[in-house]
């Protein structure tokens, strides 16, 4: 899995490329892999203000909707116009042609909360490890599980 150097990363799995006072934002390779086939992207309009840690758009897989959280605050300068018709570009090239928006940073200090590539790689590894530990916990419980409650739907 790739974690390009020179990008900043958020805990919600967005990447940020800073050039002067503008920041280009997309979602990471890990995020697109977790989502699966992306079939729809909702982006803000140019001129809209996005607010750090608030949702500024959404990506949808066949199965579900996921909010995209703003890693920084700022005014939208540009959105990626190929995404509405070609949302799968995010799966194919999350760090390149799959970029989502470019914003004018409103507070350069927002960047301090983001991770660098090494920190993010470690963060992702930790998340994967947590998943595996959950699996192991379940293995231990296997003998006890009998007739559990069921949720509402299925076929």
């Amino acid at each position: 899995m790739e974690f390009p150097e020179g990008l900043k990363y958020s805990k919600e799995h967005e990447w940020v490329l800073v050039e002067g006072t503008s920041a280009t934002i997309g979602i990471t390779e890990f995020a697109q892999e977790e989502l699966g086939d992306i079939v729809f992207v909702e982006l803000p309009e140019v001129g809209e203000k996005i607010v750090k840690d608030d949702p500024f758009g959404a990506v949808e897989s066949v199965k579900a909707v996921s909010d995209i959280y703003a890693p920084v605050s700022g005014e939208v300068l540009e959105t990626n116009e190929i995404l509405p018709d070609n949302p799968e570009t995010i799966n194919d090239d999350p760090y390149g042609d799959g970029w989502m928006v470019r914003v004018e940073l409103s507070d350069i200090d927002d960047l301090k909360d983001l991770m660098d590539a090494d920190e993010y790689a470690e963060y992702v590894a930790q998340q994967k490890e947590d998943d595996d530990e959950e699996d192991e916990d379940e293995d231990e419980d296997d003998d006890e599980e009998e007739e559990d409650e069921k949720d509402d739907d299925d076929k």
Partner: peptide, 22 residues
């Protein structure tokens, strides 16, 4: 497979991608 919870079961939601499989 990517496994998910479904009706109390841990089930495969996809192997190579929902659209490909469909």
């Amino acid at each position: 497979a990517k496994m998910v919870e479904f009706a109390g079961w841990e089930m495969p939601v996809q192997y190579r991608g929902v659209i490909k499989e469909h």
